[in-house]
Computed example of a mutant assay.
Amino acid sequence: MDDAALKEAITRILKDDVFVDIIRDQVRAAVDSAVAARDEEIEALKEELAETRAQLNGLEQYSRRLCLDVSGIPETPNEDTDRLVMDTARLAGVDVSKTDIDRSHRVGAVKPGRPRTLLVRFVSYAKREAFYGARRQLRQPRSFEGSTVTTAVASKVFVTDNLTRENQHILYRARQFRKEGKLFAAWSDVGKLKVRLRENGPTTVIRTMTDLQKLVNSAAERRKPQAPMETDGDGFRRVTRGNKSSAK
């Protein structure tokens, strides 16, 4: 077959609607397959990135295991933050000395009329836990002479875990869900975020915002009312499928 005949044959084939449909379907299938593979790869990369972020956040939170946030203590020029921590701890019934404190300082932006949070890092985990465990005693502080923190101030002081920015955001959202009645409780435990869907229910550890949202969504799905069971005149259960029904 010479070039002219071959060209004419190809032209006839390309004008054949059946052939065009076959080629179009094959091209469409190839494109759909490539897009699906790409989407799967992107989804896998997103999951890998999310897991990496969760692990990094966990490592950062672990590095703060000796730290506590103390909020509500008035801020003054040239203050001795170590002394403020020691006196606050003593008001809660815990003996904390200078040697127990690695470092302490204020954190956050200065806002008129609002004292910044005091961050303290302890030398030992045991001392950190002793102060944290006695934090509720500050509601009824034990006064002593020479304290730089008054009992009136101490009764309004809050001692909390020093959380990463990510964990602060997750815990804030969890507490919003609690206010909305979607959770029973949300709290942090040495940097681990924990929630309880109902009173006396199991405790769930939350690592990411996705974990929290899935838990809330799952609980909401379980709370949805079930469709009422229909029966026919003879008392048999009637199962509805679309617009059709059958008795069982």
Rank of each mutant, 00 (worst) to 15 (best):
R128M: 13
R207P: 00
P141T: 02
E8T: 14
T203F: 08
R83M: 10
S188H: 03
E75L: 01
D2H: 07
A9V: 13
N167V: 01
F19V: 15
K214L: 10
Q176A: 13
C67Q: 07
A92P: 05
V27G: 06
R175S: 10
D39A: 11
V190Q: 14
S143C: 00
I23C: 13
V96G: 09
R106I: 01
G113K: 03
K244S: 13
K111Y: 00
F19N: 08
D80N: 14
G233H: 10
W187M: 09
L59V: 04
L193T: 06
D232S: 05
R196A: 12
S143G: 05
P115M: 05
Q61E: 09
N78H: 10
R12T: 13
P225C: 07
F122H: 11
V153C: 08
V110A: 00
H169L: 13
Q213T: 15
T231Q: 12
Y172V: 08
A227R: 14
T99E: 14
D189S: 15
M209T: 11
K46R: 11
V85P: 02
T76N: 06
I10E: 15
A154Q: 04
N243R: 12
L68Q: 00
L49N: 08
Q55M: 08
Q137K: 15
E8K: 15
S104G: 04
Q176P: 00
T52Q: 08
N167Y: 03
A109C: 05
V94L: 04
L66V: 00
V239P: 00
I73V: 06
T231V: 12
